[in-house]
């Protein structure tokens, strides 16, 4: 009986691995093509696809340089915005969600419902209104206009509300209160450590979204030295009559590789965090 079960599990396991392998190819092939194209010349790219890298990486990079593209600075700019946005989003959203989950107060229901409604507002449109509004404060062409609104990220609050509800341990919080910890201290020392896996998960999503978001930055940032990485890459495409596909792909790859590395570094914490969470009851 047990042996039978093992065999069927093994067969199942084989098919699962097969499925995973196929899925992996489908998933990574386009990413691979993008990276390979960064090593190919513009005309090679125009002539068709190749799975093997070519030898034009350097000449593509020279084209990038000749266009006056300062990739390291763009990288630093993107990093500043994405990191600040992530920290603010994660911290303040968890704070807000904890306030909603952990406390009873008048208007709480209303607040929570309003947050849900806020999630559903389409943002592409309000960007013009937002620009003209920021202009009044002199905050256009300024990172603050990109970063500060994340204090009120309705979607992130929604995420943490759902998340905290499922991991909240009232006993620990009560114990903290008996020990005389302040309410904010309880949030920082008890709630936050428990919620670290969630914080990392949402943090990564926020970071990626902020890193790749170029529409808002495009509208709000004007001076070249404040350009984010995606914006710099897009400027290459601005020269519509001279498509330097190789250089564009190299620029794309250059903007993708840092985020892949960052992602690989931090996704380890998700794994650890989740097993940590699994210990608790």
């Amino acid at each position: 009986m047990i042996k039978n079960y093992r065999i069927s599990t093994n067969i199942l396991r084989f098919f699962i691995y097969l499925f995973l392998a196929v899925l992996l190819i489908i998933t990574l092939l386009p990413v691979w093509l993008l990276l390979v194209n960064a090593t190919r010349s513009t005309l090679e790219i125009q002539q068709g696809i190749s799975l093997l890298p070519s030898q034009y990486t350097l000449s593509n990079y020279k084209i990038l340089l000749s266009k006056g593209l300062d990739l390291p600075r763009g990288f630093l700019n993107s990093l500043t915005i994405a990191a600040a946005t992530t920290v603010i989003t994660v911290y303040f959203s968890m704070l807000t969600a904890y306030g909603i989950v952990g406390y009873e107060f008048k208007g709480k229901k209303f607040l929570y419902n309003s947050i849900l409604v806020l999630v559903m507002i389409p943002m592409q449109l309000s960007i013009i209104g937002f620009y003209q509004y920021m202009s009044r404060f002199g905050l256009t062409d300024n990172y603050l206009s990109l970063i500060l609104p994340s204090v009120a990220s309705a979607g992130a609050v929604f995420f943490f509300k759902q998340y905290l509800e499922s991991i909240m341990i009232q006993d620990l919080i009560d114990a903290g209160r008996i020990d005389g910890a302040s309410e904010l201290g309880i949030f920082h020392r008890i709630m936050f450590p428990i919620a670290v896996p969630g914080a990392f998960t949402l943090g990564i999503f926020t970071f990626v979204a902020s890193w790749n978001n170029f529409f808002n930055a495009y509208i709000l940032i004007t001076s070249r030295q404040k350009y984010t990485l995606p914006m710099l890459v897009q400027t290459l495409r601005g020269d519509v009559y001279r498509h330097e596909y190789g250089a564009i792909y190299l620029g794309l790859a250059a903007s993708v590789i840092p985020i892949i590395i960052i992602y690989f570094l931090f996704s380890r914490y998700i794994v650890n965090g989740i097993s940590m969470g699994a210990v608790k009851e």
């Binding site: 960007i127 013009i128 620009y131 003209q132 202009s135 009044r136 256009t140 495009y218 509208i219 004007t222 070249r224 897009q234 400027t235 495409r237 601005g238 020269d239 519509v240």
Partner: peptide
């Protein structure tokens, strides 16, 4: 220089009108 790709230039120019 703001590229015209996908109309960013036009959009941005429109956004600054009156500011």
């Amino acid at each position: 220089m703001i590229p015209m790709t996908n109309g960013e230039y036009q959009t941005k120019l429109m956004a600054t009108l009156g500011t």
